[in-house]
Simulated assay, not measured.
Amino acid sequence: MHGLGNDFVVLDARTMPMPRMTPAIARALADRRTGIGCDQLVLLEPSEAHDFRVRFFNSDGSEAGACGNGSRAVAVLHGAPATVETASGPITLEPLAGGARVDMGVPRFDWDAIPLAYPMDTFTMPVGWENLTEPMAVNVGNPHVIFFVADAEAAELDRLGPLIEHDPLFPERVNVNVASLAGEDHLRLRVWERGAGLTRACGTGACATAVAAIRRGLVSSPVRVTLPGGDLLIAWEPRGAPSGSILMSGPAVESFRGTFDWDDYA
């Protein structure tokens, strides 16, 4: 499946038990040359507390707490509204014509919720990497830093992204977002995704960037976020209902179905 070109291998283990997923197996399945190939692997499992559980694995085998585009893909696959368990807490999904809407929960801004290595104001961080300076940090189920620049396309994200992702300031690494204003309540965004690299779209990145832009007074909700793969609509009111949650809407589609032998990837 994919959402705006951000593609996923989705494994449904809700009713059919599967061998235990490991970082090595996730990495092997995600390999575009010797595996199936994807940006992230999405695993659906039973849940005692919610409709089901969703786990997200990056292409490097690491497990992520949230994935916005992957969540929309899950909503489309499930085909009905649901509340699902994730590593970052429960989220609600609702399929729509051609896609889905996801309640991504409440963003967090405290330095230790990102987390950062030491206390710091996350609204305008007094740090920089060459011409990318004074970002905002937001946790939307996974950690993000957002840089607002004149032209997002001109940023050397392929070079600076991995440097920022692995900086000691971010003990759990970080997703790197570079955004610019494209019009009234409209942002253009590129993302270096933690554990996956440059991506055509990042749902949590769009959420984090929209929230940061609203907090800084650059745009008002709802915000259209244009990524290389297409547009997402992000709605967030800091004191709105439900409890300041982020609502993300956008497309997701199934590309194909297939089978594989687990022993080939164990």
Results as ranks from 00 to 15, higher is better:
Asp110Arg: 15
Asp263Pro: 08
Pro19Arg: 12
Asp12Asn: 07
Gly37His: 08
Phe109Arg: 12
Leu77Ile: 12
Gly244Gln: 07
Ala137Tyr: 00
Arg108Ser: 11
Ala155Glu: 11
Gly258Ala: 07
Gly244Cys: 11
Ala66Cys: 10
Pro135His: 02
Leu198Cys: 12
Gly217Ser: 06
Glu130Met: 15
Asn58Gln: 03
Gly105Ile: 02
Gly79Phe: 09
Val149Phe: 05
Glu165Gln: 09
Pro90Thr: 15
Thr226Arg: 10
Ala97Ile: 10
Val76Leu: 08
Glu130Lys: 15
Gly141Asn: 09
Arg239Cys: 13
Asp121Pro: 04
Leu160Met: 14
Gln40Pro: 01
Ser249Val: 09
Ala213Val: 02
Asn175Val: 00
Cys38Ala: 15
Ala73Thr: 06
Ala64His: 05
Phe123Gln: 11
Pro81Ser: 06
Gly217Glu: 02
Cys38His: 02
Thr204Trp: 13
Gly203Leu: 12
Ile234Phe: 10
Ser71Pro: 10
Phe170Val: 07
Ala210Met: 11
Ala210Thr: 03
Thr226Met: 02
Pro90Asp: 10
Cys202Gln: 11
Asp103Pro: 15
Leu96Glu: 11
Met1Glu: 03
Ala64Ser: 10
Ala26Phe: 00
Ser249Lys: 08
Ser47Pro: 05
Leu227His: 12
Gly230Cys: 07
Ala152Lys: 03
Glu237Tyr: 10
Trp236Thr: 01
Gly3Ile: 10
Val191His: 10
Asp264Val: 01
Tyr118Gln: 14
Met18His: 12
Ala75Asp: 08
Glu153Lys: 12
Ala235Tyr: 08
Ala235Pro: 06
Asp231Val: 08
Val149Ile: 08
Ser62His: 01
Leu187Ser: 05
Asp167Trp: 00
Met136Asp: 09
